[in-house]
Each structure stands twice: as structure tokens, then as C-alpha cells.
Amino acid sequence: MAAPILDIRNLSISFATPRGSVDALRNVSLTVPPDRIVGIVGESGCGKTTLISAVMHLLAHNAIVRAGTIQFEGTDVLTMTEDRLRDLRGRRMAMVFQDPMTSLNPVVSIATQMIDIQYRDAGSTQDKLQRAVAMLRKVGIPDPEQRIQGYPHQFSGGMRQRISIAMALLMNPALLIADEPTTALDVTMEAQIIHLLRQLRREFKGSILFVSHNLGLIAELCDEVVVMYAGEVVEQGEVRELFHHARHPYTRLLLECDPARIAATTRRLPTIEGSLPDLANLPGGCIFAPRCPQAYGPCASEAPGTYAVASGHTARCFRVRDG
């Protein structure tokens, strides 16, 4: 197997707060192989955002990296100089944010923003403009020669997100990080953007790290899935394997709760009892044990390791170890 684009090993990150240390990520390991789409799925507070901020090295000032490495194309992002990082961001790794209205600059034309982003390249402004226009055409902006002179408010939400994707792909990055890129969009527009991402990936030979809480989108787009809960990776595997043979009780409950997966209509929708643990005051044992319907002997006192379920499929659950 080719060397991964992104290789995160045993990453633990805490935030220093007035209430004490909040352990937002604990012992997280995941890899993004070349030319693959890896999805991170989890509910609020699971650490998705902290994880992708760490990959871009854009963590808040009170963040403390307790342990671990983030190898991007073979070098550790966490020990890089700021100059080196600046060189990577936008060029080798790019990001599409949740809300295109806040990620695009409202007072600068699309043309200027797309030329600016190519500042590292030598070519003439005219060449850069041509490249930007070509990229807009690829992401499906009609009449890009004219429209590139427009400002973000002159575009619909779907078009703005297409522009963000065009900007992210302009430098042909090895890794595209998409953080809930369709949350602000309607369902028909969402389907179009997902279709676009899949198309572009074929053309651009890059990997995508796709973050979402929507299981449908993960199933639709991703090759591999990482399930996070309360700052830990609880299960990961190839997409079909994970959706059809989920082993961690949290993953199973999450799948059961999705109304889109419930075939017969019901007025009593399933939920996951209990609430997230306090990350400033973690209980011993398995992180999910207090809410887990299958918790037994060791779960309350011992923290489970990561156990293999099948090839490339692991879960952090004693039930997997003990069969």
C-alpha cells in the first residue's frame, strides 16, 4: 500500500479552561491513503472540529498537544515551522468550510479572491484569471467569464459552495478537508455538491477528509469511515463493512437512530439514552459504558483497546476482544 497522505498517530489534545483541563481528543489514530475519501462521523462534541484544526495546525491558543504525531506527506505538522505550514496550507492541503457566506470575503470580487490564492505562482495575472475561470467552469458555475467578476452575495448558497470548492482545488492539493460542506444547503443542492465532489475526485487525484454528522452523506460519498465519540475513535473501517457490520454499540445505536434507516414508519423514534460525559472530568473505563446497553464486567473500570473486527475494520470495545 502506498504511503498515506495523512497519518495521525495516538493524538491527544487538551484545552486549558478555567474548569481545568478538557481532554478533547484522546489517543486518536487514523490514516488517509492517497486517492481515498475518508469520512469522520460523530455528533456534537465528538472532537471532529478539534481534529481537523489540528491537521491544519489552526488550534486555539489554549490547546495543548499532549501526545501524538500528525504526519502529512511524511512530515509532522505539529513540529513544523510557521513558514513551512503557510507553504502547505492552501497548496498541499485545502479546506472547504461549512458556511460559504462566512468563508468567502464579502467585499472582494470572486476574481480577485481566486487570483490572490495563487500568490505563490509566478504566472501573469491574466493567466491566473484564466485558470480561475476554467476552475469555475469545472465546478459548474454557468457563464464563468462574466460571473467571476461578481461578489459572493450575488451567488446562491449552492453556487457559493461551488466557488469555495473551486478555490480549494485551484492549487491541486493532495488533501482536501471538507467540514460539513453541505449543512447550509438544501437537500437538492446537497446532492449536487456531493455528486460534484465525487466527480472532481476522479479528475484531481487527491484525497478528501470529509467531516459530517449525516450518515447518509457518509454512505453516499466515502470509501472509509471513522466514527468518533466524545474525543475518541470508537470504530473505523471500509464504508460497506462499517454500515453493514458495525460492531461498536455506539455506531450501531447511531445507525438505528437515523430516521432514514427506519423502514416502517413509527411515531416512537429511537434515541440514545444519557448524555455525553464531561470531558473535564472523565469517568474511568470505556468512554461509552455509561450509555451502553451492552456494557458488562470490564467496561466500567478498564479502558478498552482497539481490536480488529475484520481486515481494516477495528472497534474500541471489549465485546470485540471477547467475541
Binding site: 437538492t188 446537497e190 446532492a191 456531493i194 449525516n214 454512505a219 453516499e220 464504508v239 434507516r261
Partner: peptide
């Protein structure tokens, strides 16, 4: 609209994005 809803089942992927335009 119904066809645009992503199905949480990797075996039910759609090749076409369904409704086009805005």
C-alpha cells in the same frame, strides 16, 4: 426532492445527482 435525500446505505449510491438546477 425525495430522491435527493442521501440514503445511509453505501449499496444505494446514486450515480446521478437527481434534480438539477436551482
Amino acid at each position: 426532492l425525495l430522491g435527493a435525500v442521501p440514503q445511509p446505505d453505501p449499496d444505494k449510491r446514486r450515480e446521478e445527482p437527481g434534480l438539477m438546477g436551482e
